[in-house]
Computed example of a mutant assay.
Amino acid sequence: MKTIISLTLLFALVLQLANAQEERPIYTVAYNHAPDGFNYPLIGFVNHAVGDHKGAQIGFVNTNGGDFSGAQISFLNTTGGDLDGAQISFVNVTAGGYSGSQIGFINTAVKESSGAQIGFVNTLVKESSGTQIGFVNTAAQYLGGAQIGFVNINPAKVDGAQIGFVNMTKSLESLQLGFLNYADSLKDNGVPIGLLSIVRKGGYKAIEFGFTEMHPVNASFKIGVPKLYTTFNASYNPDLKDEFALGGGFGSILAMGNVFYVNPEAIFQNQVGSNNDMVRLSLNLGIALSQKIHLVVGPSATWVQSDKYNEYVEPNFYFRRDTFDENDELFLGINAALRYNFSY
């Protein structure tokens, strides 16, 4: 800690000395000082340019008081104005905007920018038309490019894609691809794809109760958007050795007017307490009995895989049954359900 404090005081003293002699360049191995318009490379431990500077700054600490055009390569890079070029270091900060790239562990740009931020933590304070690639990406205002990382946050609007584990934006006009997606509102071209996608305005949320040929009692919760939603399913059959099944999948609502729609779904379920799995594909016809209450009915195909052939009893009903071996069977059946839509 004492060493860090000493270096900080020494650095401050050097800067004060430089400011006192800012009209005269200083060029040494340890410290380089350039006045406004001194457009020559600065290569040293500490590089400090008072005003605008063009060229290169290569060292441990690079600072530039005004606009900078070229490359800053060090442990810490800062510019007081706009950056036209590249900052490559552990920490990159520009008080203006940038046209080019910031590559480091922490990258921050205060004003309008275009280009790429590549690092662990990337932050854009104003509008940007570039791309952020990192562990945590934050764009406080409009972003015309993409965010690719573990956590992507944008409280305004994203025109490009958000690809990460957690994606958050106010207005979604493109693609969200992740484990958890959140958007306050959805535009026509916006599509969230993930295990759980929440859209506060314009999203899709529904609960459903129905039956299938394998389970007379089924309940599900559906959330996402009409184009692509996630469904979480729980089923019960008292005649099966393992009575309960849990799982989930994806579905889509393809409107055919205000009353009817096509509703394909793909669902995976596991019989709780066993290694028996089911993959179910259904093609439903949806009928809006009212704005909130819908009836869905349609054919289905269910692939059943079990450890032992005799662990499954006869289904409630089926139209066709194909047995491939002692572990795999295919059933063709039908399902029907009532769905309560509380999206509106």
Results as ranks from 00 to 15, higher is better:
197 S>F: 09
161 A>F: 12
124 L>A: 15
11 F>D: 05
64 N>C: 13
42 L>Q: 15
245 A>I: 06
152 N>T: 11
85 G>C: 06
53 H>T: 02
50 V>D: 05
264 P>K: 04
199 V>E: 00
41 P>N: 15
276 N>L: 10
231 T>P: 05
90 F>P: 01
64 N>A: 06
23 E>I: 01
52 D>L: 02
127 E>A: 11
175 L>M: 11
159 D>A: 06
192 P>I: 01
305 Q>A: 06
111 K>F: 06
143 L>E: 01
66 G>W: 09
310 N>W: 07
93 V>W: 11
60 F>N: 12
144 G>F: 05
197 S>H: 07
158 V>D: 00
337 A>S: 15
88 I>K: 14
290 S>M: 04
285 L>A: 14
99 S>Q: 15
140 A>G: 00
29 V>P: 01
48 H>Q: 14
54 K>N: 09
26 I>R: 10
322 D>K: 13
21 Q>R: 04
120 F>D: 00
222 K>M: 12
139 A>V: 00
117 Q>C: 03
36 D>N: 15
193 I>V: 15
86 A>K: 07
295 L>A: 08
344 Y>G: 12
251 G>K: 12
260 F>C: 03
267 I>N: 04
22 E>V: 09
243 E>R: 15
192 P>E: 02
25 P>I: 08
19 N>K: 13
171 S>T: 14
52 D>A: 04
102 Q>M: 07
274 S>M: 04
301 A>V: 14
18 A>H: 08
323 T>W: 10
165 F>C: 03
226 P>Q: 12
169 T>L: 09
210 G>A: 07
109 A>K: 08
308 K>M: 10
341 N>C: 08
58 I>R: 12
208 E>L: 13
228 L>I: 07
284 N>C: 07
261 Y>G: 03
272 V>H: 12
321 R>Y: 08
191 V>F: 11
90 F>W: 11
285 L>E: 02
81 G>K: 00
142 Y>H: 06
131 T>L: 03
281 L>W: 10
48 H>S: 15
322 D>Y: 08
76 L>F: 15
197 S>K: 10
63 T>F: 11
308 K>G: 06
288 A>H: 11
182 Y>V: 06
239 D>S: 11
44 G>P: 12
108 T>F: 13
326 E>N: 15
20 A>K: 08
168 M>Y: 04
317 F>W: 12
243 E>Q: 14
270 N>C: 03
332 L>T: 09
89 S>G: 15
325 D>Y: 03
187 K>V: 07
